[in-house]
Design a protein around this nucleic acid. Structure first.
Length: 257
DNA sequence: AATAGGATCAACCGCGAATGT
DNA sequence: CACATTCGCGGTTGATCCTAT
């Protein structure tokens, strides 16, 4: 038996959203918060499937979205992140405040690919087209990892933490760094699942009550839509306060980071 | 002015992961 | 543990806009 559709296809609107539909969705989410996408359309009076509502909200209606052209810095960051993460657009978007995965994906396909090709770089491999191995993967990874504060598994990349970008992780520690601190980089194995935290502005509201959702939405304004320094530790987000394996939690006051 | 072709981007689709029962 | 449900992601499509001829 096939998978049941996410919604009853009949009597559902498709295609471009109207202003009225947008307003209904925004009003509903402002009042009740995100989540429960399946039941949201009916509750909001929309003839759309939940998936469509979620997409419209995430990619277009969310109040924290940054509009306008990508900056040169964003371009370079996307290129670096893509060289490390590949087509993990949601992870990349998590490092670019105000940008959505869809937006970055489109931008990559329409602009950055061409930009790299014009530089003679293969956008898939991030290597020069006419040379077999120009960019050392390890050095590239190291560069990006140091910039973004990603960790390694197997041998977890140790302290200290370098400068952050985009409020990736506010688990900072002060102090200077020397390369020997990191051990042998050939021992490192990327562990993106463990190391790459959620978007600093994103919080799952899945399966929360209406009250909790509303509270979550309220908190967006100050906490999740805040400045880049407002990043929140993943451990705290998932309720693992005082997690010894997290450098955020070690030696810091709970609920303050 | 008409139109063909390219560029852009919002939206859809299918799938796998996560979660619930 | 098995199955169902829901969510989120990445690939793809198609409508619209822009530009060159």
């Amino acid at each position: 038996m096939g998978r049941s559709p996410c919604c009853e296809k009949a009597h559902m609107n498709k295609g471009a959203w109207t202003k009225e539909e947008d307003q209904l969705l925004v009003d509903y989410i402002r009042k009740h918060g995100e989540g429960c996408w399946r039941s949201l359309p009916r509750a909001a009076g929309l003839q759309r499937c939940g998936k469509s509502c979620r997409l419209r909200w995430m990619n277009y209606l969310r109040p924290d979205l940054k509009r306008g052209n990508f900056t040169e810095e964003e371009d370079e960051l996307i290129i670096k992140l893509h060289s490390l993460l590949g087509n993990k657009w949601s992870l990349i978007a998590g490092r670019l405040p105000g940008r959505t995965d869809n937006e970055i994906k489109n931008y990559w396909n329409t602009h950055i690919k061409r930009k790299l090709l014009s530089r003679g770089i293969d956008p898939n491999t991030h290597r020069l087209i006419n040379e077999s191995a120009v960019v050392s993967p390890s050095s590239l990874q190291n560069d990006v990892v140091e910039t973004l504060n990603l960790d390694f598994a197997g041998k977890v990349k140790p302290e200290p933490v370098r400068e952050e970008i985009g409020g990736i992780n506010n688990c900072t520690s002060s102090g200077t760094t020397s390369e020997k601190d990191y051990g042998n980089e050939e021992d490192w194995v990327l562990n993106l699942e463990l190391s790459v935290g959620p978007s600093y502005r994103y919080e799952s509201t899945r399966k929360v009550s209406v009250v909790d959702s509303a509270e979550s939405t309220r908190r967006w304004g100050s906490e999740l839509f805040g400045t880049q320094s407002d990043a929140v530790c993943l451990c705290c987000r998932i309720g693992l306060f005082h997690n010894e394996s997290c450098r955020n939690c070690r030696g810091s006051d709970v609920r303050t980071h």
